[in-house]
Design a protein around this nucleic acid. Structure first.
Lengths: 343, 343
DNA sequence: ACCTCGACGTTATACGTAACACCTCGGGGG
DNA sequence: CCCCCGAGGTGTTACGTATAACGTCGAGGT
């Protein structure tokens, strides 16, 4: 380690700026913090700003956080970001956060696999609050213990622990799907459901059964699969090959499962939508990449992130957070049609 | 603000632990920092740990960072995470980072749109280093100014600024694609290229032209499109409808563009792969969701993230970083076949 | 001529942690 | 018997920032 004696320029501090500008460190802090209307003259302020720019000063965020006790940082806890939905949630949250001078740091909860590391160790800064998806089940235990402001995304509103909930109107979305399919004349359904057992999927199942129950003469079978294409295909293929009258429509909890359902159909020689209708949920990029394009429910993922951040900011300010669900909309594309034998 | 006088329990500090355990704060720090082989007795250490657990002590990371001058935090600069490739890069980097007690914080560079916020303000902690994709063009300027250890992903190795490069063997991948297609008998190609102009895409183009040039009798046309399905479809549709002999194979810079190419083919009544072969690049989940499944080049995205983090850790330790490219592999699936009129 | 007062800064301090330098005490070698 | 030494700690300091509390100085009122 003889080479460790490098003349590292040692990142400039506010004191260096002060020296360069010929003022005290406190003045630098005032000027750069924007708190100088009447405390520092304009000429001095300008001198300080010039000096800061010249020597390339950047405030040490660790020191600032320590001093202020707040970090303007939120932790977003989600399942793997490879799910486009959550990537978009993050984008929305980060966007709004930035507008308010906040940062968003991620804890990707790795689906419960892995050693379930400490979410707070993963966040490198101290946190002002947490926004968590109900799907990040493994991390939720640790979160409740930390008495930080907590905003839950798409979770059971009757859970009183969190400071706020941000929910999508999933039930309405599923009802739009069933109305659409019933209107086309479908009566025999397969519900390709997610194997994960969280509120958002429970709501899908509940709304689906409610709506089909009202129709009276509709029947539905349910199979569950993990959220990936292959699992969806296998489950759908098995269900479609089963004995008994074949369903004419598959309602999927997710576009990814719908993609699997489409592949299953093709394997069995069933044409979508003529012989089998398929619906998705989420409206991921995948939905329009497939052929035919998926009829699906568009979820405003970015808005979920924004609203989560809004709610957190509200809570931090002592304001009440909005509580109504975000509206969702059925997008009818090419994967649904009347069942075989109907116009 | 009369309600601001809440009896907030005031997060416990190491001094609180010390008081509870009947030792000094220094001892707490030693024990919890793991630096006590021979400095503190086992019984005392246990007492400290118990006290810490009991009062729910969590170290203040801001204070620790300030004290240590290092934060064990890296900034990952990538284009939008909605691109699965980068989500996987992040996952790989975060995974390896966690094993070394590091955290990874993101700066999603929003593709150059937006107000190009300060990457360092987005990172809430001070940073030990930066890992940046060459595709996050807008942020790169700010990065070089910050004299932090910088690891570049998939960027021109002749750029001497960065401390290290982590590159995929893109040229080899493209050569595998062309070899595969030439072997099937294709001679007329369309190169559906990315409109973004970065090293990784320049390499694709270079390798493609080199390989086809060696074949002698091959011809290739190039069209460019932004990285989304619709843009890819439109570009491909236009190129396929153009006058002149139609290409028998489309080589795409990306699976997303390949999805667009497949849609274009279907619109024009061309069956894939019988009448038109299509290849992708990346091997995203999308590649196996499509029908037929895409022949594509599998890029080890997680490995890219891991290697980026490895390289950064190496640089921080003063060790040299590995420099050889990561191997990639052609995955032959259903979207390629001999051209029409060949067995 | 004295006091006041605003404008403009400065001095001093605390945030919570890690680590350097020091202290104490009992036992063993000289 | 004295000194030294190591085990087992403790006191103190510094990290860089924001801000409360405190000067200073010239102008203006009486």
């Amino acid at each position: 380690m003889t080479s460790a004696q490098q003349p590292v320029p040692a990142r400039p501090t506010s004191r260096d700026v002060a020296r360069a500008a010929g003022v005290s460190q406190a003045t630098v802090s005032l000027v750069l913090g924007g708190k100088w209307p009447g405390r520092v003259s304009e000429t001095t302020a300008q001198r300080v700003r010039d000096a800061a720019a010249e020597i390339g000063y950047r405030p040490n965020l660790a020191a600032r956080s320590l001093r202020l006790g707040r970090t303007r940082t939120a932790l977003l806890v989600v399942p793997a970001l490879t799910n486009e939905f959550f990537a978009r949630v993050y984008a929305g949250a980060a966007e709004l956060a930035a507008e308010h001078g906040f940062g968003v740091v991620l804890y990707p909860s790795i689906d419960g696999t892995g050693p379930a590391r400490d979410p707070f160790a993963s966040a490198r800064a101290a946190l002002d609050g947490v926004i968590a998806s109900s799907m990040a089940a493994d991390a939720l235990g640790a979160l409740h213990g930390a008495d930080l402001p907590l905003v839950m995304l798409d979770s059971d509103p009757s859970d009183t622990g969190p400071a706020a909930h941000v929910n999508l109107d999933i039930a309405d979305g599923m009802r739009q799907v069933t109305d659409h399919l019933l209107g086309l004349g479908h009566r025999r359904f397969l519900h390709l459901a997610s194997a994960v057992d969280t509120w958002t999927f429970a709501v899908r199942a509940g709304a689906l059964h409610d709506a089909l129950g009202e129709a009276g003469d509709a029947t539905v079978r349910t199979v569950r699969a993990p959220l990936d294409v292959r699992a969806g295909r296998e489950a759908a293929e098995q269900a479609l090959s089963a004995l008994g009258e074949r369903p004419t429509a598959i309602i999927c909890d997710d576009d990814i499962l719908a993609a699997g359902a489409c592949k299953a159909a093709r394997r069995l020689g069933l044409r979508v939508p003529d012989e089998l209708s398929v619906t998705g949920f989420d409206d991921l990029a995948l939905a329009t990449a497939l052929e035919p394009e998926l009829t699906t429910v568009r979820l405003p993922a970015e808005r979920v992130g924004e609203r989560g951040m809004e709610a957190l900011l509200a809570v931090l300010d002592g304001r009440p957070a909005e509580r109504d669900g975000l509206p969702v909309r059925l997008v009818v594309r090419g994967s649904t049609a009347p069942p075989p034998g109907r116009a």
